[in-house]
Design a protein around this nucleic acid. Structure first.
Lengths: 106, 106
DNA sequence: ATTTACTACTATATAATACACTGTAATGAA
DNA sequence: TTCATTACAGTGTATTATATAGTAGTAAAT
């Protein structure tokens, strides 16, 4: 898959998903990679950055089947950011589609 | 607009547009920037790279209202590349939409 | 005891776009 | 005639998100 397509969108995906409920990192990786080709080394730094910027809070829970899990919970700031990003994304996709989908007589 | 969204897609847009007919650089910038926020300094290097990789041929024409124009014409290789990129893009968008559009109870 | 699955994390490299330029040609206004 | 403006082509450096390729540690199964 084209590496460049993913730039920026992954952040939006992470925000949207964690906005629905709390996720721990590994779980998030599984969820996203079932739709998009990504690896853990891509998600963890992203979570770290978003947490550092106040978009997530975190807490630890025992798992019973492995090491303790670190859950990410979206903050108000995170929700606002998600909403803004989502709107930008929709506008962007609209623009791209306008360019790409004008009758291509190939 | 989020800078990162554009990564990689601009290349696809340029290929798709020039596949329809020959464009000169400045004209292409006008066309794309009416839908997406970009500047000349972004498009010219892209055209240069795609030409260097054999996806475009170029030729010069006088314009009558400014300096001569450099037209870009897509090659067979460019058409194939465009088609492959387009399919990847559609798959990618499908994956993103699956992640993003699952009922968001906000 | 060893392997396997689960979980968290990080350093370095890659690569596309942004920004801020340089420079030329034609045109119209002063 | 000179100057400003628009049309047009091009480039160097900085930024930044993701890929790659790891490290490391826990719990359960064999």
């Amino acid at each position: 898959m084209n590496v460049q397509f993913k730039k920026g969108v992954l952040e939006l995906c992470v925000l949207v998903i964690i906005c629905r409920r709390d996720f721990y990192g590994y779980e998030l990786v599984q969820t996203i990679s079932s739709n998009i080709d990504i690896s853990e080394g891509t998600i963890y730094p992203l979570l770290r950055r978003l947490t550092k910027d106040g978009h997530f809070n975190t807490y630890i829970r025992e798992s019973g089947e492995g090491p303790p899990r670190k859950y990410y919970q979206i903050t108000e700031k995170g929700k606002e950011y998600k909403q803004a990003l989502l709107e930008e994304w929709n506008q962007f996709i609209t623009g791209v589609n306008n360019l790409i989908e004008e009758k291509d007589i190939t």
